[in-house]
């Protein structure tokens, strides 16, 4: 079973940007946009939404649909009314547009079914709108700066935790635990988090990183793990040792960025 993602937005730029982000983290997932009015200006068009749905459903079994402002939602519902057969294979979720798109795509990349992908998108609301880790724009400097980066004169987005990450959970009897230091200068940002989540999902072993479910990109991002920070890795089950070693290897390897 494969699930694709359709992004419906008033803005072509907005949808394309969210799709770009989702594809970066889930390269094998079909992500299509139904955005803009008939001429590509701000608005929504039933034809564009229908085309995106048809294109996606031509390649995958089911599709999760995210929409931005009110009339984008109405347009999707209208598409379902015009062609009632769509409802069996397409589901409109109530989710934050960007976070939901990323969560849906990453979950779909892991081979999950429609229910799980929809739930991931809707669960993404938990990652926004509450105090805790925040996304900050940081002006980098040539001297390394606080984040230890060597990029000169660029603004980058990093997730920062206002407080130290919480301690890891109690490790069960059959568990394995290890500690590893994040080597990426920008910390566990979007791309490494996605790589890590995919790898852990492929392993099929329950793993926590910094106390959170390591298959969840959004939870990993919310850790706000910065470069140099130590993280606790735990796993349990038959292949716990292999899984922890693999995760430690990935993090120590710097995800190809260092």
């Amino acid at each position: 079973m494969t699930v694709g993602v359709v992004l419906v937005s008033h803005s072509v730029l907005l949808a394309d940007g969210a799709a770009e982000l989702a594809r970066e983290m889930a390269p094998d997932v079909v992500v299509r946009c139904g955005a803009g009015d008939v001429d590509g200006g701000l608005g929504t068009s039933l034809e564009r939404v229908q085309a995106a749905l048809a294109d996606t459903l031509g390649q995958v079994d089911d599709v999760v649909v995210l929409a931005d402002l009110g009339s984008a939602v109405l347009t999707v519902e209208t598409a379902f009314e015009v062609d009632e057969s769509l409802v069996r294979r397409a589901r409109l979720v109530s989710a934050p547009f960007v976070e939901g798109a990323v969560a849906a795509a990453v979950t779909a990349q892991q081979g999950a079914g429609l229910d799980a992908v929809a739930a991931a998108a809707e669960g993404a609301v938990a990652s926004i709108g509450r105090p805790g880790p925040v996304l900050e724009l940081v002006e980098t400097s040539g001297t390394g700066g606080a984040a230890g980066t060597e990029i000169v004169g660029e603004t980058v987005a990093v997730v920062r935790a206002p407080e130290p990450a919480p301690a890891g959970p109690v490790v069960p009897a059959d568990g394995v635990i290890a500690r590893v230091t994040v080597r990426n200068p920008l910390g566990l940002h979007a791309r490494p988090a996605a790589v890590l989540a995919r790898a852990v999902a492929d392993l099929g072993v329950p793993v926590t990183v910094g106390g959170v479910d390591a298959t969840s990109v959004l939870q990993l991002l919310a850790l706000g793990a910065t470069g140099g920070q130590e993280l606790e890795i735990t796993a349990r089950g038959d292949r716990a040792e292999v899984a922890v070693a693999a995760v430690v290897g990935l993090i120590e390897g710097g995800f190809g960025e260092v």
Binding site: H10, D37, V38, G41, L42, G43, T44, S45, L46, E47, G70, S71, L74, T75, E77, T78, E81, V82
Partner: peptide, 18 residues
């Protein structure tokens, strides 16, 4: 109906279309 749905951007397209 079908023409308004496709050509009217904003909420009135789907509303009047429906």
């Amino acid at each position: 109906a079908t023409t308004l749905m496709s050509s009217v951007g904003g909420a009135s397209g789907p509303l009047y279309g429906t």
